[in-house]
Every structure is written in C-alpha cells, then in structure tokens.
Amino acid sequence: MSTVKQTGNGDLFEQEHAQPRVVRRDGITDAGLAHFQSAYPAETITKEDLFYYVYGLLHSPDYRERYADNLSKELPRIPCVKTAANFWAFSKAGRALAELHLNYETVPTYAGAKIDTGGKKLTDADYRVEKMKVPKIGKEYDRSTLIYNSKITVTGIPLEAYDYVVNGKPALDWVVERQCVKTDKDSGIVNDANDWAIDTMHNPRYPLELFLRVITVSLETMKIVNSLPKLDILTK
C-alpha cells in the first residue's frame, strides 16, 4: 500500500499554495483480495491483513526454499495456505515483522551487550566513528565483539543476531558497512555517518546505538521467523 500527495486537480492556473490532497493506493487488487477471501469464506479478511500475510510469508524459510528458483527469475508467487489458522499466523507474524523493520531506529538497544570504554568517561566527541571492525582471533572473526573505534569496544554480541540476513548479508554487517566515513572514488564526495548522526539525528551516539538496536531487531525477527508455521499450501 502506498500514499501519495497530489495538489488540486492539475489546473494550469491553480494557486501554488493549494493544500496537498492525500490519495491512498492499494498495492493489492480487489481480485487478489477476493481470491483469498474465497479460500477462507468464514473469515473477514481485509487488504491490510493480506498485505501482512504476504510479508510474513516472504520471511518463511519453507517458502524461500520451495520457491527459490522462481524468486531468482520472476515476481514471487503467493499461495494460499491450507488453513485459516495458518493464514492468520502468517498475517500476525508479518504485522509484527513490519513493526520491527519500520521502527528499527526506535526499538530498544540490546541490553545484553557490554560497552567497554576502558573505564573512561566519554564525551560526545568520543562516539565519532571512522570504520567499525570485527576483530580476528587467529584466522577466524570474533563476531561476538565489535571494535567501534579506538575508545569503544562492544562485547557480548549474540551470534544468532547474524542469522537475520537482508539482501544476502546480515543486517548487522550492513550497519558496519554504512556507518562510517567513506570517500567515493569517482566523485571524491565524502560520506560521513557522523554528519547524519549530529545534524539530522541530533545524537552523536547514533551509529553505536543503531548497531545495538539492529541486534534487537535481528533477534526478534529470527524469533518470529522461527515460530512461523510449516508451509502447507491449499490446492484446488
């Protein structure tokens, strides 16, 4: 579902200060909704319920494995599951997942991690990040630890948090990759995560807190995903 803003009716001479008109457009067709309503005639299903069903279904390991070939070539197929109970299980899970993923910047930081500052009291300037690093022990990375900068090390990171993968990479790795200072080779433009933290978020601790919040998001996501019902498809 999407929401767009339109101003007036497009008249050439309409006033520039015309108030925008919000128009809501459904990403689910009436025919699509009717298809699922016919599968569960005793249920009252809305487009919103179906939207979250799809979101939940797309996180199902069973679904991803069964339709792996299709997902790499074409738009995903969305089957009806065999029972209404499982439909609602996927829809409820999808709603919870969407809540987590949309509000990842405001979920609680993971309380199980320890922030090691070497016993020093930090100032706002001490939270500046250049490039986070996962240390190595021998030839293996110690993913339970993150070197945030020269003054801050995070320990106690649960390894299962890395199980939540987005576009082929753990969500935590995306944070490490993006929350840094990096110069684009072609343009010479400097992308500085600290500028965003201070100027936009008004919080110099934002990169560190984001990493800790994404631990929470990752753990809660996998908890929901692991509780999804087995994919039992309705056949007609």
Rank of each mutant, 00 (worst) to 15 (best):
I45G: 11
S187L: 09
L231V: 07
H35Q: 12
A125I: 06
K223A: 11
K236I: 02
V214D: 06
D30K: 13
V175F: 00
T106H: 10
Q6N: 11
L231D: 07
V225N: 07
A197I: 06
E160G: 01
S150L: 04
G10E: 06
L57W: 05
I189C: 00
N86A: 08
L208D: 05
P61E: 04
L33D: 04
T183S: 10
I198E: 12
G56H: 04
Q179E: 15
L234K: 15
A18K: 11
E140T: 09
A125D: 14
C80Y: 00
D49K: 08
A125G: 04
K139T: 11
E65G: 10
M201S: 05
G168Y: 04
T153N: 05
F211T: 02
P20C: 07
A93N: 04
V129S: 03
V166K: 12
N203Q: 06
T44W: 05
E160C: 06
T145A: 08
D199S: 10
S72H: 07
D195C: 03
S60M: 08
H59C: 04
V214T: 14
A193E: 04
V22K: 15
L122V: 05
V225S: 04
V175Y: 00
Y52H: 15
N167V: 03
E177D: 15
L159M: 04
V107S: 07
D173G: 03
K120I: 08
N226G: 13
T117Y: 03
L212Q: 12
A84T: 09
E209S: 01
